[in-house]
Every structure is written in C-alpha cells, then in structure tokens.
Design a protein around this nucleic acid. Structure first.
Lengths: 223, 223
DNA sequence: CACCATAAATCGTCCCATGATTCTAGTCTG
DNA sequence: CAGACTAGAATCATGGGACGATTTATGGTG
C-alpha cells in the first residue's frame, strides 16, 4: 500500500495551507489586505477552527501572514523565502549577507548579457536614468531606492525566477539590517560604473558584465 | 506605550516555536529522533495543547518537524532554509536551480582562495582524493556523493555560514529533483579539472578559482 | 467638535471529546 | 518453540466550546 500523496494531500491542515497560499499567490488577497476572519474561513473551507488556526499559524511563521489581535489577519508577503531569509540572515554578519548578494548578482549579470531582450534593455536604461535623477536630488533615501531598482532590473534581465526571488529576499534582508549605513558607503565613486554594466549587458558580453557587477560591492576581505 | 518586542516575544506560540527551535538547533533533539509527545510538551512548557500543536505545525510546515499519526513527531531538518528552498525550487526548472548553485559556488571559490586555512586545504585534498577513489569504483551513486562532498568543502573554505547554508539547501533541492540524471551528465571530462580549482585556492588566486568553479557547471544557455 | 466610556469584533489561549493510525503486548495455533 | 493474529494502548488529527486580551466601532457628554 504505497498510497501516493496526490489523492489526499495527507492532512487537512496542509490542504488548507495550500488553498490559502493559492489565494495569496493569485493576488486575490493582496499584500497588506485583511483575509477573512477565522469564523468566516471555517465556513468557507468547511473545516474546524483548530484546523484553520494551525494553517494560518504555519503561514504566519513563514512570514506570509500576520495576525493582529482584535483586528484581523493580514497578508505580509507573497512568498515564504523572504521571511525565512530575513530570520536567517538577520541574525548574521551583514558582511556575509552582502557576499551572498554579490554571488547572485554577478551570475545574474552574466546571464543577463546572454538573455536580455529589447524590453530588458529599455527597462535598464530607464532605471539607469532614474538613478541619475535620484543622484542629483542628493536625497540618500531616494537614491538608495533607485539604486536598488537598477540592481533588481539587472537581475530580472537574467530571466531566472529563482535567482530573482532569492536576490530580492537577500536584498530585503540587507535593507532591514543596515538600512542607513549602506547608503553613504556606496555613494563614493560608484556612480559612473553603473552605466558600464548596462553597456556590457547590451553588448552581450557575459564576462565583462560579471566583472562590472562584482565591482559594485567592494572586493571581499580576507577575514 | 511602545512596548518593545523583547520582554514578551508577543505571542505564546512564537515563544514555544523559539524554544523548540533552540532544542533542535542545539542538537538535543537530533535529526531523525522523536520529540516528546504533545501531552509531555504541554507539561514541560506549561502551555495548552493547542499552543503546542500550533507551534509544532508551524515547524512542520517549515520542514523542521514531521508528524506521524499514531507514532510521534520527528525532527526532519535543523534549519528551515532547506525545506522552503526545496518547496520553491522543487516546482521550478532544474536548469534555473543549477544556475543559482553556480552563482553561489563561483563566489564561494573566490572567497575560499582568499580565506582558506591550512585545515581547509587538508580537507580539500582529502575530499579530492576520496573523489578519485570513488571515481575508480565506477559506482555512480558513490561518486556523486563524493563529488558533492568536494564541492561542499570548497564552499566551506569560504568561511561564510550563510553562503554555506544556502548552498547546502540548493544542492539538496537539486538532488531531490534530478537524483539520477545529474550523475551521468557530469561524468564526461570534468574529472581532471577538479584538481585545478583546489590548486587555485591553495595558490590564493581568487579569479582563477572562480573561473575554475564556473567551469564545472556547463556554460549557461541563451534560452 | 473633541473627548471618553461602553460595546462589538477579532485573534490568542485553554480544555475536552472523538476519530484515525501506529505501536505494543499478549495469545493462539501449528 | 516460532510465527501470526488480535486486542489494547499510545499518539497525532480534527472538531467544538469557552474565556481573556486587544483593537475597532459606537454613542454619549462636555
């Protein structure tokens, strides 16, 4: 009796978790919105309140949902990776996290040079221009945001959803960790270089794109 | 009343999750072992059964625990990253996952060249020798295992715990996905090259180490 | 209109009961 | 005595009800 795990997703709670996850992934419950109350979910799903609560609790721990006593349960994120990465990397050395980011971004730049479409190039040019404008304003918060947008655009041009999600999660963890400190540190002489990585991606030169991407984040230290 | 989140970890369930996670992380409940029964946890932790169940369910969804009806609850993994990555990457294109692995491994090789200790080099030599022995046996399963050990040793020499954990999780996801197919594909002419990456790490040449590491996984395709 | 007290809504915790599944121990049979 | 079968215990899965804590809505009062 080997009983495949297809017919019955084994436990009821797992089925409820799947249904809730689908609703969230499909965008029917957007980030920040309030999901139905527990009694409503009990009626909608046709299961007991304990089952609903265990499913909601599982997604809460995963960083997807967030319960507020007296108010309701809200959608916090669409994917579980961000929450787990934040917990893992939040308690760790920021330098190590930045090295992980560097790893992902360098490979993403290489892939982007091979796979970028005309649309990708248009988005990269737009992000680059927006970054220049943000630079001119002198507002570090605005600039950091625009800078992040450009980096995300580079990773998106790699056309690898897994890589993009991981990168976004790591970037979020870094933002949460240092927030302010990262801004000034990157404002030094890194302004001009960013045009060159876009150029390398446009030229379809993976090695040069990877080299340029690696230059953004200071060369790793020996310790 | 801004009520910092330190004094009370907000909800009871979260506190229970933390305590269970600590027990597991500390190795007091090893992987594969059975944790106390629900009534026992109720008494040990001094909380209600629903609270225990919600905490256990959260860790079950995270891939840390696994409940077996009629038998008990068992430890499945020590970290939550593996489970989440497996769920995310398991449903995705294996090629994309391999690209993520490549990203992590290339940067790890670069860092290893900068930070490797004598102990690291000893372990790398041992893993390289073990891989040669496994190659000689002709048993693909044994060889794939020894090959993975060498790659893990390279990543470990980078001395970046976050990078190492992520790499291990991605590697596990790849193993679970393809299992057999990966073996034959890598057996071609990649046998000799592995000595060169260890040599590059020993010489402390980060660029060469990165280049050699990138060579293991076939150059990414345009599509 | 502003402020405050009360009530309602909602999640958090606890307890009890029952079903489904697995493990254990004893018993029976050959 | 060995093996298999059965009855019971142990354990997790699910459902239901109750009460507390917190937030939100409501309405009254100056």
């Amino acid at each position: 009796m080997l009983r495949m795990t297809l017919g019955t997703r084994s436990t009821l709670v797992q089925q409820v978790i799947s249904r809730l996850s689908e609703q969230i992934a499909a965008g029917e419950w957007p980030v920040g919105s309030k999901i139905p109350t527990e009694p409503q979910l009990v009626e909608i799903l046709g299961v007991g309140r304990n089952t609903v609560r265990e499913a909601v609790r599982a997604l809460t721990h995963a960083g997807v949902l967030e319960g507020v006593q007296g108010s309701g349960t809200y959608v916090r994120s669409t994917d579980e990776l961000t929450g787990v990465v934040a917990r893992k990397f939040g308690a760790a050395d920021v330098g190590h996290t930045i090295e992980v980011r560097r790893a992902l971004e360098v490979e993403a730049a290489r892939l982007a040079a091979l796979r970028r479409t005309p649309d990708d190039l248009a988005r990269l040019d737009a992000a680059l221009a927006a970054r220049d404008v943000a630079w001119a304003t002198g507002d570090t918060d605005v600039f950091v945001e625009a800078d992040a947008d450009l980096h995300v655009a580079v990773v998106a041009a790699a056309h690898n959803p897994m890589l993009a999600e991981l990168y976004a999660s790591v970037l979020a963890a870094i933002k949460a960790s240092v927030a302010v400190a990262v801004g000034p540190a990157m404002l030094a002489g890194t302004h001009i270089d960013h045009a060159q990585i876009v150029a390398a991606i446009r030229d379809g030169d993976p090695d040069r794109a990877a080299r340029e991407a690696g230059r953004f984040l200071e060369a790793p230290a020996r310790a």
